[in-house]
Amino acid sequence: MDDMARKPLPTLRLRRLAAELRSLRSAASLSREAVEERTGITGTTLYRLETAKVRPQRRTLNSLLDLYNVTDAKAREDLHALSRKSGDPEWLQSYQSELTEQYMTYIAFEQEAREVRNFESLFVPGLLQTEAYATAVIAGVLPTATPEEVANRVRVRLQRQRLLEQQEPLRLWAVVDEAAFRRTVGGSAVMADQLRTLAERAALPHVSVQVIPFNAGAHPGMPGSFSVLSFADSADPDIVYTDSMSGDLFTDSPPAVRRHMLTFAHLQSVAVSPADSIQLLNRLVDELE
Rank of each mutant, 00 (worst) to 15 (best):
Y103T: 14
T60W: 03
N118A: 10
E112D: 14
V124A: 02
K53Q: 11
E115R: 07
R55I: 09
T135I: 10
M104G: 09
D88R: 07
A134I: 00
V54A: 00
M104V: 02
P56H: 08
G87P: 11
A113S: 14
T51R: 06
L64R: 05
T60S: 05
L92M: 07
E115I: 02
N118M: 13
L122A: 06
T45D: 05
S83G: 05
L64Y: 03
L64W: 02
A113D: 08
F119C: 04
Y133G: 13
A75R: 02
L49K: 08
P125L: 14
A75D: 00
Q96Y: 07
L82Q: 04
E115W: 01
T105Q: 14
Y133V: 05
E115T: 15
G43P: 04
N69W: 00
R84T: 13
R55E: 00
P56Q: 13
E98G: 15
Q111I: 10
Y103K: 07
R84I: 12
Q111P: 14
R117L: 10
A52S: 10
A75Y: 01
E112N: 12
R55H: 10
P125C: 15
D66H: 00
Y95Q: 09
E90T: 04
S86E: 06
E50P: 06
L65E: 03
L128K: 08
R48G: 10
R55N: 06
T60K: 00
T105V: 01
T44E: 00
N62W: 07
R114F: 05
R59K: 06
A73S: 07
L46D: 09
S63P: 11
S83M: 07
T71N: 00
T105N: 06
N69K: 02
G43S: 12
K85E: 14
V70I: 05
Q111K: 02
Y47A: 13
L49A: 11
L79G: 09
L128D: 07
